[in-house]
Design a protein around this nucleic acid. Structure first.
Lengths: 201, 201
DNA sequence: CCATGTGAATGCGTTCACAGCC
DNA sequence: GGCTGTGAACGCATTCACATGG
């Protein structure tokens, strides 16, 4: 499959569409139905999907086929390995996050600077002290890190992840991380979500 | 202050810029410095900020003044009242989320269908059984709900919130909620963030 | 008729270029 | 020189309109 160019807005919509398709048990879906569920215009939906190559028919799109095509086009057919950094309340919640099992993401390590925590916490995933981060990341080819440390340690922990060769970070600390341009960041912070809500209300 | 029209992309950037300004202790900041921190072009930054009314000088923008102006323009100077629905691991974590104290968001109630949980959990915030949701929302003028229930209860819980008169929902359940168009939704789900990362890597 | 797909037109946000100011 | 602010030019995404097919 040739590497088709998909614009950023289209990518975002396809990502969301994929989620809808995965819940949808119907055998096929039309652009109008998608319009109803999402609010995007039919035209936009058709343009988005047709960018993946003509896979529609007069009865709409075949859901299973469409979702697997989207997955391929967005590179979601590849497996990724994750680690959790910071095993406080949030971090240890993700250690036991069952939804990872059914996904293309595999959690393979947890880190904390507090050696006590590393020893005491029971987990199916192996835990390591933070100073081993770079070594373990390389050994297990981990490419994504969940950053769950407190605000004041977030930047230094991110630096360690990057030194280990990570490609992407999901950041739960309420700060703007400084990272080289080849590293992707997604910020997840409730106050920001609330503000975004308030601003768009 | 007249209600100035701010485009959606500008809103998003201002929201992010506000976060940067709040961490920044310097007395003033220029569009070039913002460009460095964010990657947005100076021109875009200047256009964004000037949409709020000329508040720059030859030495850049005065940080304190700029952030308070952004807050006003985005409606973040108003207080909002929150409730948490679903007091499992995530929900009860937010019950004790100290960062709310320093923010414009006030957590005033928690709900769960499980009456036992409501009675047993200790919390500074009053807890109620789920059937009282609409009544309590109205009584305390709650306008935003944090939806922390399991996937299969998310839609019905959202319906109850809306029936109570909520305006916005931060949804932590991995499904696409169906809501009327006057309700704002922000979805927070790790798998989605991971996928977004993977798609943009 | 209902669908999809796709060039053409539109609209909107970003970038450019320059004027004004410290 | 630095900076901000702003009309003009540009580019890209959405919308429109229509061709095509079951």
């Amino acid at each position: 499959m040739k590497n088709l160019e998909v614009s950023t807005p289209t990518k975002k919509r396809l990502l969301y569409l994929l989620k809808i398709l995965e819940k949808n048990k119907a055998i096929s879906i039309t652009s109008s139905q998608i319009e109803e569920e999402t609010g995007w215009s039919r035209d936009t939906v058709r343009k988005d999907v047709s960018a993946l190559g003509g896979l529609g028919s007069a009865s709409g799109y075949e859901t299973a086929h469409l979702s697997s095509t989207i997955r391929k086009a967005l590179g979601l057919d590849k497996k990724h390995r994750l680690c959790v950094v910071g095993l406080g309340r949030l971090g240890s919640a993700y250690l036991n996050f069952r939804t990872f099992n059914a996904s293309e993401f595999e959690l393979v390590a947890g880190f904390d600077t507090n050696v006590n925590r590393v020893e005491i916490l029971s987990s199916l995933v192996p835990l390591y002290p933070a100073y081993k981060m770079a070594e373990i990341i390389r050994r297990f080819s981990i490419d994504i890190g969940l950053l769950c440390v407190p605000e004041d340690q977030a930047q230094s922990a991110a630096d360690k992840l990057i030194a280990g060769g990570i490609c992407g970070i999901v950041n739960f600390a309420p700060i703007v991380l400084k990272v080289p341009p080849n590293i992707s960041i997604r910020n997840v912070f409730v106050i920001d979500e609330l503000r975004a809500l308030a601003a768009f209300l």
